[in-house]
Design a protein around this nucleic acid. Structure first.
Ligand SMILES: [Mn+2]
Ligand SMILES: [Mn+2]
Ligand SMILES: [Mn+2]
Ligand SMILES: [Mn+2]
Lengths: 161, 161
DNA sequence: GCTTTTTTGTAGCCTCGACTACATTTTAGG
DNA sequence: CCTAAAATGTAGTCGAGGCTACAAAAAAGC
C-alpha cells in the first residue's frame, strides 16, 4: 500500500524522486528546528523534578552554554507557550511544556534502549541518543518499542501495522 | 592529568552529572554543525555519479531550498576544501570531499538498514535516517554493522579475515 | 547593615542557513 | 544572429543560537 521506495521509486502517487528527496531533507530540517526546544523542556522538567526548581544558571551549566544563551532560549520557550518564569524564582513549564517534556523523555529513553539492544555500548548510546532522538518519528518509535518487547509504546496510541 | 579536583579519576559514570550532560549536548551540537555539509557532499556525489554533473540548480531542487541558498552553502563547501566549481560547469568534489561522501553514504545506508532491521517501515526509515545519520558515531555504526551480520565493519581499516 | 558574590538580565557581535529580489551570463529557440 | 529562457551569482534581510562584556538585582557573608 505504501511506497516501497528503496531507491528512486516514486510510488507515492507519481511524485518525482526530487520531490521525495526534498521532502526528506525538509523533514530533517524541521526536526532540527525543534531540537533545542525539546532539550530545554526535557532538562527543565528534569530539574524541576530532582531539584524542585529550574534556574537559568543551572540550565546553562547542564547544557554547556553561557547563561546569556540559556536566557535567550528560555525567552523562545516562553514565546512558544512552553514555559513561564518568575524573576529569581526559576523557570516553569506550561501544560503544553509538561506534555512535550514527557514525550521527549520517553522518546529519549526508548532511543537509548534501542541502541543498547542492538549492541551499542551504553555510554556511547547515551551520547548518540542526544542528537538522534530529535529525528525519530512516532512510527519508528513504535517500531522500537515493538522490537524491545514493550507492549505499551506511548500513551498516544499511534499504531503502525 | 586528573589533578583538576580533589576527586579521584571519574570512571565514566561517576563524574559530575553536569559535565557529562553538557558534553553530550555539545557533541550533538557539533554533529549538527556538519550535517548540512554532509548532505551536500553526499548529494553532489550522487549527482556526479548518476548525472555526470552536479549543477547548483539541481542541488537546490533536490534539497528543497532556493538556488541562492544552495550556492551559498556550496561556497562554504569550497571554503572548507570539500568542493570546487567551474562556472556553468557544476560542482566537483575534492579528494577530501569524495572521501567524506563515501563515508556519509555508507553510514546513511547502514542507518536505514538498521532501522528496517528493527522493524521500521522502509519508507519511514528513509525519512528518519536523513536526520539520524548525522548523529551516529563510528562506535554505534560498528555496532549496527555487527547487528546486521556484516563481516568486519572496517573499523579504521583493521583487516581481520 | 553593609559589602561581596551569585544570579539574572541586556546589549552587541558573530556565523549559519534560510529567504527574496535583482543582476548577469550562458544556453536555447526562432 | 538576436532574443527569450534558464542558470548562476550577488546583495540584503531574517531568525536561531552561539559568544563576551557590562549592568542590575538578589542572596550570602561578615
Ligand atoms: Mn537531545
Ligand atoms: Mn534528550
Ligand atoms: Mn542527512
Ligand atoms: Mn543522507
Amino acid at each position: 500500500m505504501v511506497t516501497k521506495n528503496a531507491m528512486p521509486t516514486p510510488l507515492c502517487g507519481e511524485l518525482p524522486a526530487e520531490a521525495v528527496q526534498a521532502a526528506r531533507f525538509e523533514k530533517a530540517r524541521s526536526a532540527q528546528a525543534s531540537a533545542v526546544l525539546e532539550d530545554y523542556v526535557e532538562l527543565i522538567d528534569d530539574l524541576l523534578t530532582s531539584q524542585g526548581e529550574a534556574r537559568p544558571t543551572d540550565i546553562a551549566r547542564r547544557l554547556g552554554v553561557s547563561h546569556a544563551t540559556a536566557i535567550k532560549s528560555i525567552g523562545r520557550l516562553k514565546r512558544e507557550g512552553l514555559a513561564t518564569s518568575k524573576l529569581y524564582r526559576g523557570v516553569f513549564l506550561t501544560p503544553r511544556g509538561l506534555d512535550l517534556a514527557a514525550r521527549v523523555r520517553a522518546r529519549h529513553r526508548l532511543v537509548v534502549d534501542l541502541l543498547v539492544a542492538v549492541g551499542v555500548p551504553p555510554h556511547c548510546a547515551e551520547l548518540d541518543a542526544e542528537g538522534i532522538e530529535h529525528h525519530v518519528s512516532d512510527t519508528a518509535l513504535a517500531a522500537f518499542a515493538r522490537f524491545l518487547g514493550h507492549e505499551r509504546p506511548t500513551d498516544d496510541g499511534a499504531e503502525v501495522e
